[in-house]
Write a protein that binds this DNA or RNA. Structure first.
Lengths: 353, 353
DNA sequence: ATCGTTACCGGGAACGATTGCGTAAATAAA
DNA sequence: TTTATTTACGCAATCGTTCCCGGTAACGAT
């Protein structure tokens, strides 16, 4: 069964005109008489003619669709970003094709191949936690594909990027933990080479440093599947609580890690925040309803999607190659709640300050 | 900046052949000599030729893309469904264009217009809670557009549908509440005319009936924006707790309503389950971590997406018009947790009645 | 020598839309 | 009356691909 649509040729035949005349009439060209225009327009309206976007794409050599690759859409941060992307894209007559890498480099490559073979006009991507080899992206970019990175960006490729101030976000969150009396603060992060891991851990380290707390590398754990597997989070937590210098708080550097870590702590009967403080990056609005409510670093995800798309459309619609690129750095929001409540066993510590 | 790709014409020119020969060589036609094939194939491989999908679409009069409309992707049930849809679609060389209605009829119409004007080959949709007028969908269907409904289906349109056993799901959940000692069970649902509202409330009513509990229409509330606005959920809860026959438990019939209702109860200081039991449809894996953990009815969302897509592809790829349609009814899963714990303070309350 | 067959390849029309160019008729200017 | 200009439309190429027609060799059979 096929869905047949009215073409410009049908209109031409029905009205005894040529296709060029019909086309021009529809586009309100000056060289068509008002009477003919009216005739064509009315006929098109009545039979609800819509220009075939595929034919237009072929002619204009652009598909008016952009590709988006994220690790998964069932993740508050990314679904909110996608909302922002869609709002701008649809507003400009573009459609959005979404693909999920599920934190796998292989799947990311497959999606990349698929999307480019589907001739997208541009790409918005937050790379997977496994991605270390950027050669394909690089080649794509060099061959002229407009690309905008967000969240997990790639330093080696010069193009527009949208991120939050990862360093400051982690710095502030860690500082707050210190202020609240936590001393042995651990961090659970994605793969070490990932941009957000590097920046957020740098902020974490700096905060400890500036507060006179030595950084203990044993308290920094990496989850190479970004928390997609609960087991890896479980292992990280296990290693932390079994360590001789058992931490009294944990900083998690991404959505999936935050809820995953909380899940593990709960299942192990480790009480939050009494036994273990917890602060993490998260955009889920359910974290507020957990027990205890989670202190989170919330990113302006919707806005990030909007900005990324605006920048991408600029690249796509630019007449000549763009040489100047910008990295937009937005502020995140630290929302303080129960999971990092001030420790009551403080007096002695305060005295020591 | 434009992304230029190798065409069949380029290959033809480079190899001194005609485009038809190249085309046939690439498609391994019998009328091309092995040597020529090898020549063409190797050249194509080396310069990584990919057929232009847009040109193919124009020729074959199909876009190999399907449209999906849900109320929002930042909703566990729908994002899981979309995962199922994508897994099947990508596997069959289709891409998926997702649009969100945000529970608004107007936005649904805009998306529908947009998607059909982008010449999709088929449509998978769960209608918004506002949608009462199906004329556009009906016309689309009559004009030959393959459509599959899931979750919120439309009875008037005869095509494939995928749902869970909504009646039984609500019946079982309500029955369990009764078994656990709850007596005045309220329900918060979407708009009354929505398929899932009708079926789930029917199950709810039947369960009360079969347990000898009279159905009190004052304890059935409808949220016309499907919980997209927290205020409407708040109002529903307010009306319930202020009612003379204040309920001791609530059944919520969709994801957004479940977490919304829990949020409102929490903010109003109404303890769950002591003061108010709560069971609802939800696919969020965070409900387990709430305080108390929520008893939920979980739908096999991923599987629903897979089935819907398989059925849609059948419709699309069928040579002749399909006349026989099926409605797949899957089983849901009732996961019992803390929010519907058996009431201990039963004797005195029963006495006071 | 002629015909039929097979193997191999090219020309060109389509798919739906846009657009540069050509041109007839009508009107204005010389 | 002749020439220039304007008005209003059609022709045909184009985008990348497929596929229906051809067409031309080479070869064997008659």
């Amino acid at each position: 069964m096929r869905f047949e649509a009215l073409t410009i040729k049908d209109i031409a035949k029905a009205l005894g005109l040529s296709t060029s005349t019909v086309s021009r009439a529809l586009r309100d060209s000056y060289e068509i008489s008002p009477e003919t225009k009216k005739l064509v327009l009315e006929y098109a309206e009545k039979n609800n003619y819509h220009p075939n976007p595929i034919a237009l794409s072929l002619k204009e050599r652009r598909s008016r669709s952009i590709g988006v690759i994220v690790c998964e859409i069932a993740n508050s941060f990314f679904s909110q970003t996608i909302n922002g992307i869609e709002s701008i894209a649809y507003h400009n007559g573009y459609n959005v094709i979404i693909a999920q890498s599920r934190e796998s480099f292989d799947r990311e490559m497959i999606n990349l191949q698929y999307l480019t073979s589907r001739s997208i006009d541009g790409l918005i991507i937050s790379v997977s936690t496994e991605t270390r080899d950027f050669s394909f992206l690089k080649e794509l970019h060099e061959r002229g594909m407009p690309i905008v990175f967000f969240d997990r960006i790639v330093d080696e490729i010069e193009t527009h990027k949208v991120i939050v101030d990862n360093y400051k976000s982690a710095y502030d969150a860690t500082s707050q933990l210190v202020k609240n009396g936590y001393q042995r603060i651990a961090a659970i992060s994605n793969a070490a080479y990932l941009s957000i891991s590097k920046d957020r851990l740098a902020g974490y380290r700096a905060a400890l440093d500036n507060n006179g707390i030595p950084v203990n590398e044993n308290l920094i754990k990496h989850c190479h599947h970004g928390g997609m597997l609960l087991e890896e989070v479980e292992q990280a937590v296990n290693e932390l609580v079994k360590a001789p210098e058992k931490p009294d708080a944990i900083l998690t550097t991404s959505d999936k890690l935050t809820t995953g870590c909380f899940r593990v702590l709960k299942s192990k009967g480790i009480s939050v925040p009494a036994e273990m403080g917890l602060v993490g990056f998260s955009n889920s609005d359910l974290t507020e309803l957990l027990d205890p409510p989670l202190t989170i670093i919330k990113q302006p995800a919707f806005e990030m999607g909007e900005i990324a798309t605006t920048l991408l459309l600029q690249l796509i619609e630019s007449k000549r190659p763009v040489k100047e690129f910008e990295t937009r750095v937005l502020a995140s929001e630290l929302i303080t709640r129960g999971s990092t409540i001030a420790k009551k066993t403080e007096p002695q510590k305060l005295a020591s300050l």
